[in-house]
Nucleic acid binder design. Structure first.
Length: 586
RNA sequence: AGGGGCAUGGUGCAACGGUUAGCACACCGGCCUUUGAAGCCGUUGAUCUUGGUUCGAAUCCAGGUGCCCCUGCCA
């Protein structure tokens, strides 16, 4: 061990430790093997973290290997994005490899198996291959080409490589067992012909490509990977990988499978993510509503929070879906400690302090981060005209509402105690301005006479405020599991129409003028926010990462629910009475 | 005539034949508070089922039930 490991153990860590103890392996090596055909999402984070941390904890190494055995699906653009995301998460691979690096060796392995009578060229059509594979319940039937002479297969394979055959005409198959209960063992295809397009790394050198199943295990073996950690669906492929390793007599990697990480209120499959992007339901792979790592980065998530979240979900062989609330908990936890506090008003209501001098501007001291004394303090301007949050004033407040209301006194954070005196409305009856009086004795928010106020609200000075746009994000889907198989429903039907709200007239305290892309803040009483890369010199844009926990919102929600139930009860009662009356009349 | 895997509170994990079945999130209550935040304290709430082995079973065995994966020349 090179590193003190305080993380909870799990079956993979245990298995690796046992393999070291028993001498099955003398070193530990892992790999993270993405296919470069899409962006990494939070589900991949579990795989990345397991792969790299198992290696780290045991003084071994982890390679990055792109599984690029199918040129029709893979693109270079994804390679760089994937590398960036892994680095952002905080990991460094030892070697950057590609399955295509091993095309020569793989070809030699194929030759070796043909010569041993363990592989053959099949001339059946794709349809025939499928039909003869049998079904889940019935065994397959042998190909008529299965027992052709070795020399013939050798010759055909060579010509296949040389481009003498069109796509789909012939394939190389392993000769295993067409009656196996495990369909992967029914003479799986090893090589197929793909003349187009050119491979992103090997160009036109090859027109035959190994199947994933004939590439992955051997690639691990070539790299000396001791533990090939992968997701559950490869469990039934393990016997095949072991078969290849055994027949070829190469380094025996051990594969261990674990369950993928799923999250509520989102989708995680590449296919569906592509659809969200291509059909314009989101603005791109890095749209902060997406579950991709690049989107979380833009949304203001930190790698530390994502790692803590993934560790908290553990590792098991049971398919499960983590609550997105747990992810939110971890980003709050992280940002609470590190994010400087600022005041910002998202939905401004003008306030005039009628007894405050007209041209006076005072600088008041505010704490940057109560969780971190070293963050220091800053000064914020206070003047006669301010903005407060519209939701922080109510003309006719319900019980337990602690904020501003007519004749009620509250504290302006780091400012003064103020009392609402007048409400100014427009012709439509909407509140356009509030008049308040302040108590000059309460500067900084302290009352010398010791009197208390229930509420403390945030504010910004109108004159000095900086304008900004704030993008408010909500969950992308309206249901925890958009994949639930309700009849005739598509996951698209569960999209949340209100997942993005853009507030264009927000008012920020002046210190935010200098905020740079990627900088994170807590806007007091609102949540955590990050400067979006769309920000320019004259346009400040923030993304809301996550709200603060909000007890008041919960009380309101509960109240609304109670009201709804009350209404329903009343309606039912009315209906019942109506029926009764009708019966009496009859 | 299938093969493979999985089943512990609402969610996610732990308990490795002997614990009052533990932890985190959520929930609910309380304390504290110049953020209705954070922090602190506390309360609810779980071993899929039926048998078996054992002094003793969440744990081992068998049957049942339920869920997931496998019939791409995808990975």
């Amino acid at each position: 061990m090179t590193e003190e490991n305080t993380n909870p153990t799990h079956f993979i860590r245990e298995a690796v430790a046992e393999d070291l103890a028993s001498g099955r392996f003398e070193h530990i090596a892992t790999r993270f093997p993405p296919e470069p055909n899409g962006y990494l999402h939070i589900g991949h984070a579990r795989a990345i973290i397991i792969d790299f941390s198992i290696a780290q904890e045991n003084g071994g190494f982890c390679n990055l290997r792109f599984d690029d055995t199918n040129p029709v699906k893979e693109e270079v653009e994804y390679v760089d994005a994937i590398k960036e995301d892994i680095k952002w998460l905080g990991y460094q691979w030892k070697n950057e490899f590609y399955a295509s690096d091993y095309f020569d060796e793989l070809y030699e392995y194929a030759l070796q198996l043909i010569k041993a009578g363990k592989a053959y060229i099949d001339e059946q059509t794709p349809d025939e291959v499928r039909e003869n594979r049998g079904t889940l319940k019935e065994p397959g039937t042998n190909s008529p080409y299965r027992d052709r002479p070795i020399e013939e297969s050798l010759d055909l394979f060579e010509r296949m490589k040389n481009g003498e055959y069109p796509d789909g005409s012939i394939v190389l198959r392993a000769k295993i067992d067409m009656a196996s209960g495990n369909i992967n063992m029914r003479d799986p295809i090893m090589y197929r012909i793909l003349h187009e397009p050119a491979h992103h790394r090997t160009g036109n050198k090859w027109c035959i490509y190994p199947m994933y199943d004939f590439a992955h295990g051997q690639s691990d073996s070539i790299e000396g990977i001791t533990h090939s950690l992968c997701s559950l669906e490869y469990e039934s492929h393990r016997p095949l990988y072991d078969w290849f390793i055994n027949e070829l007599g190469i380094f025996p990697t051990r594969q261990i499978e674990f369950a993928r990480l799923n999250l509520t209120y989102t989708v995680m499959s590449k296919r569906r993510l592509v659809r969200l992007v291509k059909e314009g339901y989101v603005k791109g792979w890095d749209d902060p509503r997406m579950p991709t790592l690049t989107a979380y980065r833009r949304r203001g998530y930190t790698p530390e929070a994502i790692r803590a979240f993934v560790e908290a979900t553990g590792v098991a062989k049971k398919n499960s879906t983590a609550d997105v609330g747990l992810l939110e908990h971890h980003i709050r936890q992280d940002l609470n400690i590190r994010a400087p506090r600022r005041m910002a008003v998202l939905d401004p209501l003008k306030v005039v302090i009628t007894n405050y001098p007209e041209d006076k501007v005072e600088m008041l001291e505010a704490v940057n981060n109560p969780e971190d004394e070293s963050a220091g303090t800053r000064e914020i301007p206070f003047s006669r005209e301010l903005y407060i949050e519209r939701s922080d004033f109510m003309e006719d407040p319900p019980k337990k509402y602690f904020r501003l209301a007519p004749e009620r006194e509250v504290r302006l954070r780091y400012g003064y105690f103020v009392t609402a005196t007048d409400v100014v409305k427009n012709d439509a009856g909407e509140i356009v301005e509030l008049h308040c009086e302040y108590d000059p004795e309460t500067k900084g928010g302290y009352a010398p006479d010791g009197r208390k106020v229930r509420g403390t609200i945030h504010w910004v000075s109108a004159e000095e405020a900086v304008d900004a746009e704030v993008r408010i994000y909500d969950r992308l889907f309206t249901v925890p599991n958009p994949m639930s198989k309700e009849e005739g429903k598509d996951f698209i039907d569960y999209l949340n129409g209100d997942s993005l709200e853009t507030k264009k007239r927000c008012k920020m305290e002046p210190s935010l003028k200098q905020a740079r892309s990627g900088e994170k803040f807590q806007f007091e009483r609102l949540g955590y926010f990050v400067v979006d890369p769309d920000t320019t010199n004259d346009k400040l844009i923030f993304n809301r990462t996550v709200t603060l926990r909000d007890n008041w919102a919960r009380i309101e929600k509960q109240r609304a629910k109670e009201k709804m139930e009350e209404n329903r009860r009343r309606k039912q009662e009315a209906k019942r009475k109506q029926k009764e009356a009708a019966r009496k009349n009859n």
